[in-house]
Simulated scan of single mutants.
Amino acid sequence: MASGQHWHVSVTVAKGARPGRRGVLTSGVHGDEMSSVHTVQTVMSQLDPAQMSGTVMAVTDVSRPALESMQRRWPNQGRGIDLIDMNREWPGNENGVTAPGRHAGLLFDRLLRPNADFAIDFHTGTTGFDVTAFTIAGMDVPEIRAMAELYPVGQIFDNHVYPGVLHNAFVDAGIPAFTPEIGPARVLNLEMISLFVEGTMNVLKLHGILAGPLGRTGKDVGVFIGNSALPILATQGGLVEHLVKLNDKVVAGQKVAIQRNSFGEVVAEYTSSVAGEVTGQRSDAMTEPGNPLAFILFHKATPDGGETYPE
Rank of each mutant, 00 (worst) to 15 (best):
H6V: 10
V13L: 05
P19A: 12
R21H: 06
R22C: 04
G23R: 04
V24C: 10
L25I: 15
E33I: 10
E33H: 10
S35V: 00
S35L: 00
T39S: 14
V40L: 04
M44R: 10
S45G: 02
S45Y: 00
Q46A: 13
L47R: 02
L47N: 10
D48C: 13
D48A: 15
Q51N: 13
G54P: 07
M57E: 00
S63D: 14
R64H: 04
P65I: 15
A66M: 08
S69H: 05
M70K: 09
W74H: 14
Q77F: 04
G78M: 11
G78S: 12
I81K: 10
D82F: 00
N87L: 08
N87E: 08
P91Q: 04
P91D: 09
G92T: 06
N93V: 01
E94L: 11
E94I: 14
G101F: 01
G101K: 07
L106V: 11
D109P: 00
L111D: 09
R113I: 06
D117S: 09
A119I: 06
I120Q: 10
D121C: 12
D121N: 11
D121Y: 02
F122Y: 15
G125V: 05
G128L: 06
F129P: 03
F129C: 03
D130L: 02
V131Q: 06
A133L: 07
T135Q: 09
I136G: 01
A137D: 12
A137T: 06
A137V: 08
G138N: 14
D140H: 15
E143A: 07
I144D: 03
R145A: 15
R145M: 04
A146Y: 02
M147A: 11
A148Y: 04
E149V: 08
Y151V: 07
H160Q: 08
V161D: 06
G164W: 01
L166M: 13
H167R: 12
A169E: 05
V171R: 07
V171M: 03
A173H: 02
G174R: 07
G174H: 03
I175M: 02
F178Y: 10
A185F: 11
L188A: 08
F196Y: 14
V197T: 00
E198G: 10
M201Q: 13
V203F: 02
L204N: 01
K205M: 01
K205H: 00
I209D: 07
R216C: 01
T217D: 04
G222P: 06
V223Y: 02
F224W: 09
I225P: 05
G226K: 03
N227R: 00
S228V: 07
P231K: 07
A234D: 01
Q236R: 14
Q236L: 03
G238F: 10
V244N: 02
N247R: 09
D248I: 14
V256H: 05
A257T: 01
A257G: 03
I258A: 13
Q259P: 03
N261H: 03
G264Q: 13
E269K: 14
E269M: 09
T271E: 15
T271M: 11
S272Y: 07
G276I: 13
T279I: 15
T279S: 15
R282E: 09
S283A: 13
S283F: 08
P289S: 11
G290Y: 05
I296H: 05
F298P: 04
H299P: 00
K300L: 12
T308S: 09
T308G: 05
Y309S: 01
E311D: 13
